[in-house]
């Protein structure tokens, strides 16, 4: 069960982090040249814990032995792919990014909502090996350019926009 009080506590924790001290890593001579960011979509903390326990010679176990494991990490809420990745690359939750889900929708009041799927139907794909941008993707990209993480200023046509999957 999800209790509102729990969520309020989570938010309070997030704000408490404001006052947390910075890590002790030295600046300057202890920098790194590369960061490889990997998302195993769906991977719960307990999935990883179990996997490395059962498979101690696995790559994931090896990786875990090389660093710091955060046992209580939360992704964005909503916990969808777009806001989840944007959290990792912007440092912001949907509150800041405005990206809640993965379909671009324009509700043109009083007209019906127009929805642009941000993933292409299989029928439109000729070769999955090639990253292409079919015509409807161009429409979606146009919306993204207008709305891209910047808020709704300047887009008077639309009253609502969402990104969903």
């Amino acid at each position: 069960m999800i209790q509102p009080t729990l969520k309020i506590r989570a938010l309070a924790c997030a704000f408490a982090l404001v006052t947390a001290v910075l890590p002790s890593m030295a600046n300057g001579d202890e920098q790194f040249h590369h960061v490889l960011l990997l998302s195993i979509d769906g991977l719960h903390a307990q999935d990883l814990a179990r996997y490395i326990r059962v498979n101690p010679s696995s790559a994931l176990a090896q990786l875990t032995r090389l660093g710091i494991t955060y046992t209580d990490a939360s992704t964005s809420k909503p916990s969808d792919s777009f806001p989840g990745l944007l959290s990792m690359v912007t440092g912001g939750s949907p509150r800041s990014t405005g990206v809640f889900t993965t379909t671009a929708t324009i509700a043109t009041s009083p007209l019906p909502a127009q929805t642009v799927r941000l993933k292409e139907p299989r029928s439109s794909m000729t070769n999955p090996l090639i990253s292409t941008r079919p015509p409807s993707m161009a429409a979606a990209a146009l919306i993204l350019r207008h709305y891209r993480l910047t808020g709704v200023k300047g887009v008077r046509l639309s009253t609502h926009i969402a990104f969903s999957e």
Binding site: A10, C13, A14, L17, E30, F32, I40, L43, H44, A45, Q46, D47, L48, L63, T64, R65, L66, G67, I68, T69, Y70, T71, D72, A73, S74, T75, S87, S93
Partner: peptide, 21 residues
């Protein structure tokens, strides 16, 4: 509640149980 590991052979190893985002 997802997995999170930050790894490099030069890091001090450990576990952080505090809530993070």
């Amino acid at each position: 509640h997802v997995a999170l590991v930050v790894a490099n052979p030069r890091f001090n190893k450990g576990t952080v149980s505090a809530s993070v985002q």
